[in-house]
Structure formats: structure tokens, C-alpha cells
Design a protein around this nucleic acid. Structure first.
Length: 327
RNA sequence: GUCAAGGUGGCGGAGCGGUCAAACGCACCAGACUGUAAAUCUGGCGCCCGUACGGGCUACAUAGGUUCGAAUCCUAUCCUUGACA
């Protein structure tokens, strides 16, 4: 018998219908949905990030343990995790974990089932497994001073401050400026706070979680992505973009690297044609789907389901029932 | 029809006698991932053999030629684009 809270996770690459499955499961299991998506956290970036807010769902502001959060609800089911920050603000995994943990706690308190839905594998991992360095804050000054330095230099700096960490980096990260800078940031923090080995890993196994992964053959996902981009344009993506740009949305923002938005900014800046922007948007999103697949493939906890199989929903529901009833 | 510029790997585009299976970018394949993660980064990428160091073969429009040696020079042919008719 486990006293851990149950947590259902629906993950997988983009365009596999995670949200619609989640909505059905939420109905069936008295659940609430929490989006795990690093782009859908931005207010006013709706169409391009694919916040599919189902018909009948209305936004509502709620105060949850000190956070004012926006929920979308039809009076019965609630969707959390959208619109967490304004698009000109910065956001990080750690912000996500803080907010999402609060939301989940709140859902559990009402004896409802939290259903995490999304494709940002890193956020899911952070939330479920925890990272020992999640608590180490950003050091703006340090980052500025390291910015633009050559990779080999950065590696040297890290090697001086934290030889062990430097040694453990894989070949790819050794050449990744962003990762190197963060590693240096962490080692600095540890030095300053005298916490050499004391970074406690966040309580893992906090939840009794079930991982459901949705997948489709790659070609099929690619097709769906192409269709979806067309639909988003039809549904008013350009207008959304114009509004954003009018308010100062620009390529320097963290939020502006979202697929679709980045390409459209290039088009608006006359760097590429509209056709090119669309083509690139589709391509980038397909590449993204591939990256998601290589990420999720590694996680052996995931129970995979092929979405193009007609009985898939029944199979998922079956699995969830078994897990849900087992206490 | 004349003149000019040019034809390079899936595409764009360097190279302009040897160190070229050919820079670089894109695309493609595989992978990493502990506060930007829809981001960032790594490896591979003509064919065949080998885990690898490597070896063999076929390639820079086509056909000849010059050279010890040619994607690079010469000739012809075929194409493309621009200018003049």
C-alpha cells in the first residue's frame, strides 16, 4: 500500500494527440490536466504553441498557495500550466517545477488525479525525478563575463573549479557553451556556499507515477505537423503574431525561439519569404519531433501506445484503471 | 546567330595544376541532454572492405588532349544564364 500520490503522465512527440487523450482520461478518472510544455507557458502565444483549448473551456484566475494562476475550465475539467508568464519574461525549468509542484499538490488535495500532459521531456524529468542542481540560481554577472568565450576556454575554467564535473561531461557537452557556462555557475555556487557535495537530490519517488507514451510512425508525424502548420495559419496565427510584434515581441526574447514564431519574425524582418518561413517552420517542428523521440525512447518507464491503432484508447484506459485501482 | 559568364556531391556554394572524396551552409541519419530544453550541442554523411589506423573503386556536364600528375590548362560537343543581333 502506497501513500504516495498518483500521477499520470502522458508524453510523446508533438502531434500525437496527447491533449485529447488527456481530456478523455480526465473525465473518466476525475482528473485535472497539467500541461508540460515550455512554450505554452507564455501568455498570448496561443495559436503557434498549440494550446488547444477545447470548446467550452474558459479562462479563470485562481490563487493557489500564493500563486495567481490561470486555469482553463469547462466547469468540470481543468487545464493548468498554460499562461504562466508573460512573453517578455524569462522562464526556466526551476520555475516550472515550482509552479507545477504547487498545482499538483493542490489537485491531490482535492483527491483528484493529476494528469501531466506534454512534450517537454526535460520538464517532466525535472518534476518527477528532480535535479540536484535545480536550486542553484542563475548568475547574471558570471554569464555575462563568460559570454562569447571559446569552448576550450570555458572547459578550462570549469576544469579548474570543478575537475570532477569537467571529467564527467560527455563529449557533446564539453563543446556546448551553454552547458559549460551553467556547469561553471553551479561550481561557483557550490564554492561560495560551501556545499561541495551537499546538493541533496530532490525527493525522487515523490509520486506513484504511470507513464503513457503516444507515438506514431515518423512519416505520419511529419504529415500531421505539416497539416497542423497550415491549420494554425488559417486559424489566425498571423494576426496573433502581428499583435505580439506591435507590443514589442522580438527575436531577442527567450520566448521568441519558439518554433513558428522564430521563422515568422524572420519573414517580418524580410530575411526570408513567407513561403520559406512556412517551409522552415514545418521542418523545424519535424526535427523537434525527432529530438523528442530520441529523448523519450530512453525512458524505460514509458508504456508506449500507437495512436493509429483503433483500440488504443481502450488499451490506455485499461492500463490506467489497473494502476489507478491498485493502491 | 554573335559575344560574355558559367556547368562541382541531394541542394546552395568554395576550390582554379599535386596536400581533393572536394571548404562552408542547408538537407539527411544517429546521438547527447541536471535552470534558455520548441533551446543548445556532438558525431556521421560517394561506393566497397575493416571495430579502428587504413585500404580499394568511381567521381567535379560529355568526349578527347597537354602533363609525372587535372575539378583546376587546351580543343570539340552538349546545356544554362546575361548582353548584342
Amino acid at each position: 500500500m502506497s501513500d504516495k500520490n498518483k500521477l499520470l503522465i502522458i508524453c510523446g512527440p508533438t502531434a500525437t494527440g496527447k491533449t485529447s487523450l488527456a481530456l478523455q482520461l480526465a473525465e473518466q478518472f476525475n482528473g485535472e490536466i497539467v500541461s508540460v510544455d515550455s512554450r505554452q507557458v507564455y501568455v498570448s502565444m496561443d495559436i503557434g504553441t498549440g494550446k488547444d483549448i477545447p470548446e467550452g473551456f474558459k479562462p479563470q484566475n485562481l490563487n493557489v498557495s500564493g500563486y495567481w494562476l490561470k486555469v482553463y475550465t469547462n466547469g468540470k475539467t481543468r487545464i493548468w500550466g498554460y499562461d504562466l508568464v508573460k512573453w517578455h519574461e524569462e522562464f526556466s525549468v526551476s520555475d516550472y517545477v515550482n509552479i507545477a509542484s504547487t498545482i499538483i499538490k493542490n489537485i491531490c488535495l482535492q483527491s483528484k488525479l493529476p494528469i501531466l500532459v506534454g512534450g517537454t521531456g526535460f520538464y517532466i524529468k525535472a518534476l518527477i525525478d528532480g535535479f540536484d542542481t535545480l536550486q542553484v540560481p542563475k548568475n547574471e554577472v558570471l554569464r555575462k563575463s563568460l559570454e562569447g568565450k571559446e569552448v576550450s576556454k570555458l572547459y578550462e575554467v570549469l576544469r579548474c573549479k570543478d575537475p570532477e564535473k569537467a571529467l564527467f561531461l560527455n563529449e557533446s557537452d564539453k563543446k556546448n557553451p551553454r552547458r559549460l557556462i551553467r556547469a561553471i555557475e553551479v561550481s561557483d555556487w557550490k564554492l561560495q556556499n560551501n556545499r561541495y557535495n551537499q546538493l541533496s537530490s530532490k525527493t525522487s519517488h515523490k509520486y506513484d507515477s504511470l507513464f503513457v507514451g503516444l507515438c506514431l510512425p515518423k512519416n505520419r508525424i511529419f504529415e500531421l505537423i505539416e497539416d497542423r502548420v497550415g491549420k494554425r495559419l488559417k486559424v489566425g496565427f498571423e494576426k496573433e503574431m502581428d499583435m505580439l510584434v506591435k507590443q514589442g515581441f522580438n527575436s531577442g526574447l527567450q520566448s521568441a525561439c519558439a518554433i513558428g514564431y522564430a521563422q515568422w519574425l524572420k519573414f517580418l524582418n524580410k530575411e526570408i519569404s513567407k513561403e520559406q518561413a512556412i517551409k522552415e517552420w514545418i521542418r523545424k517542428e519535424q526535427l523537434y519531433a525527432k529530438r523528442q523521440m530520441t529523448w523519450f525512447r530512453k525512458d524505460k518507464r514509458i508504456h508506449w501506445f500507437y495512436v493509429d491503432n483503433y483500440s488504443f484508447f481502450a488499451e490506455v484506459a485499461d492500463l490506467v484503471i489497473k494502476w489507478h485501482n491498485k493502491s
